[in-house]
Design a binder for these strands. Structure first.
Lengths: 226, 226
DNA sequence: TAAGCTACACATACAGCGTAAGTCTGTCAA
DNA sequence: TTGACAGACTTACGCTGTATGTGTAGCTTA
């Protein structure tokens, strides 16, 4: 009689940290950051909330874990190409990862515990810049501009682009319509947002590349300076 | 007898939207965003939580309100100076406002309701760029790079700088110490963060100016292009 | 002066949050 | 067979935002 469970009807795949983190990312990707709660996450895994604590220390541990996974999705700079190409690819890869995981921006930099994917990416970027001939001081500057731009762009992309697949110009037109009453006060907003952007649309990847290249070109000139 | 209240012992200064918003900003500035709750805010004002709803629609309304106040603290670009100086000043003013109100980053761009301070600042920046001779297309690009950089820098400054007045190099040294076990894997991190930054320190205002000028100089060349 | 309206502070209650603490059960080693 | 252990579950606590209903002070109007 006791053996019944041995040939059990429900095999019950055991939970583990990886499965918890993967489900957490899926939940946040799809429902937004605020829908990532212990109870919902547990339900997603067919389990009660408290059972998760057998595999992760607490919610903060989950955040550390999924942020680390996002970092691991970013392609580190190649050592096979010139520094500018390498930095360009790494920046684009970072933007793509942050666009896939909108909830991640704002959590990437500030966490107390940095995982190996995070540290080794930072290390690789610094190494790429140093190898390209940037001085210590310039390396810090170069890193700062690039990351500020990348994270800032991702932040704006997250905040300004619609959750769904509506395109940007539709949103722009709707906003223009909403504020019709006071539009006379903002002529340039009307001209640029209401006119140009609403008509020609807006491609985030292209826009990102513009600023990125401007920054990289600017850095090139400082490569062997002070 | 009924007149007693007229010459009342407790004058009870009436609440209003402005007082609620000011207290909300003070609370968030000092205790961080997560400490801005309706109950704490009410207590700060000597009142019960639900009384706040007589003056604001809900918590989101409070957020809209305090974000608008932050926007109003940003100096719009001057029309009296050349475009680069004007853009430089408004960028610096923006960073300062975001450094004063760390909780604001991440809420500035994504809100559904834009107040007049927000709209008129956007309008003024676009106007400045158009007046400087930037084409419609270039104006969009120029705005995008600048704001991405500004917000991204503010985001990193918030996330990486300590809450208190400890200086950056102390934090860098502490982190280096924590990760001692695996530091051999990250030689460039050791060299740049552990060596250079920890020794020479880090001034955010200077660092910000470096990237800002790099971007503005890059934009100057595109001022009368396509 | 009295009636009634309005403004506004308050009290209660509810669902959902993270998680501490304790309990139950299926599996495996000795 | 027994004992240990892993891991899922239950309950409970103090938070959160806010819906709903009550009480009252003060002004307006008859």
């Amino acid at each position: 009689m006791k053996r019944r469970a041995q040939a059990s009807a429900e095999p019950r795949i055991p939970l583990n940290r990886e499965r918890v983190l993967a489900a957490a990312i899926a939940l946040a990707d799809q429902g937004g950051f605020e829908s990532l709660t212990m109870r919902k996450l547990a339900k997603e895994l067919g389990v009660e909330a408290m059972s998760l604590y057998n595999h992760v220390a607490n919610k903060d541990d989950i955040l550390d874990g999924i942020i680390e996974i996002v970092f691991s999705e970013i392609e580190p700079p190649s050592t096979e190409v010139d520094w500018k190409t390498a930095m360009r690819q790494r920046a684009i890869s970072t933007r793509e990862a942050l666009a896939r995981h909108r909830w991640a921006i704002g959590l990437m930099e500030g966490r107390a515990n940095h995982g190996p994917a995070n540290l080794s990416l930072h290390n690789a970027v610094l190494g790429c810049l140093r190898a390209a001939g940037f001085s210590m001081e310039m390396t810090v500057h170069a890193y700062s501009v690039q990351d500020s731009y990348i994270y800032g762009f991702a932040l704006q992309e997250r905040d300004m682009s619609p959750e769904s697949a509506d395109d940007f110009s539709a949103v722009a037109q709707r906003q223009m319509h909403e504020y019709q009453a006071v539009l006379d006060d903002y002529p340039h907003l009307v001209e640029v947002v209401g006119g140009y952007v609403a008509e020609s649309g807006y491609d985030y990847a292209t826009e990102f590349a513009f600023g990125l290249d401007l920054i990289l070109d600017g850095l090139e000139k400082l490569r062997n300076a002070s």
